[in-house]
Design a protein around this nucleic acid. Structure first.
Lengths: 145, 145
DNA sequence: GTTAAATGCATCGCACACGATTTAATCGCA
DNA sequence: TGCGATTAAATCGTGTGCGATGCATTTAAC
């Protein structure tokens, strides 16, 4: 299952994250496909459902993505009619992203997704939470160093 | 730090993996850049250092990648002179990938990388190993269903 | 009040990643 | 032997990701 049992541990944890991320996206894919969304697009919607009208920079902070990734992604979502993009009147350097009606309605249609994934994971909520905290701790250590 | 505290847990573990993977690749990047490698290319080399002359399919099995990802990746590595690609004489459907001299020499030049990452992670070897096993278990659960 | 620096977003180029399809080689079975 | 089914790579199109760069706007300094 693992690429090579003799791999150094630090390489193996990295590969584990790498392949688990792929497996996770694979699990989300059929659920999101039914809504016409990709995984990063879903993340943008989740962020906006939590707080609408965020700037591109705030979304990037939340999702750990740069503007060069977000701009084309948001433009595709705008073309799909999920969000609207508009320069902030106070500071015209900033672009605020807001949910359209279709974008808000998507929340109800996507409501079943987390439960589906939770079930597929075969883990308890407490187990997942603990794992999440450990993975986040590793991430912050690597980023913050 | 997290996108939204109110996110469902199964979404949050997924995002944790997603962002930790990015952070990990970010940590590898400067080390690999000095060798002229990307992270997936490094993974291919690690796999070949373990067992040279694998087929494209075997590499895909090891790295959990499809031929549509591997073929252009391997072609770039061939253009760089790291590997050679040749049809198997016994079964000409298969393409065997073997290390060049430069590809083998890269192993010594990359020897310090796992130690660097281990240090950057700020975790003990045992801690990393335990985390790796949990992440792998989640991945297998998602994949194997 | 004009200029220099910083900020926020967009553009460009490159490298994955994958679903769907195609092509070439091998296998299975009558 | 022959030919459809299967298998292994390669190809095609779309969508991220990110480093480097550019441009417009705002802020700070003088």
């Amino acid at each position: 299952m693992d690429p090579k049992p003799s791999l150094p541990t630090s390489d193996m944890i990295c590969f584990a994250l790498y392949s688990a991320t792929h497996a996770m996206q694979h699990a989300y894919k059929p659920l999101l496909e039914a809504l016409g969304l990709t995984y990063p697009q879903y993340l943008v919607l989740v962020a906006l459902w939590g707080s609408d009208g965020q700037t591109v920079g705030q979304l990037g902070q939340a999702l750990q993505l740069e503007s060069n990734t977000l701009t084309p992604l948001l433009k595709r979502m705008e073309a799909q009619g999920l969000v609207a993009r508009a320069r902030d009147a106070k500071d015209e350097r900033q672009v605020r992203v807001s949910l359209s009606t279709a974008g808000r309605e998507m929340q109800a249609r996507a409501a079943g997704i987390p439960g589906c994934i939770l079930e597929r994971s075969g883990m308890s909520l407490a187990g997942l939470t603990a794992l999440r905290d450990q993975v986040n701790a590793l991430r912050d250590q690597l980023r913050g160093a």
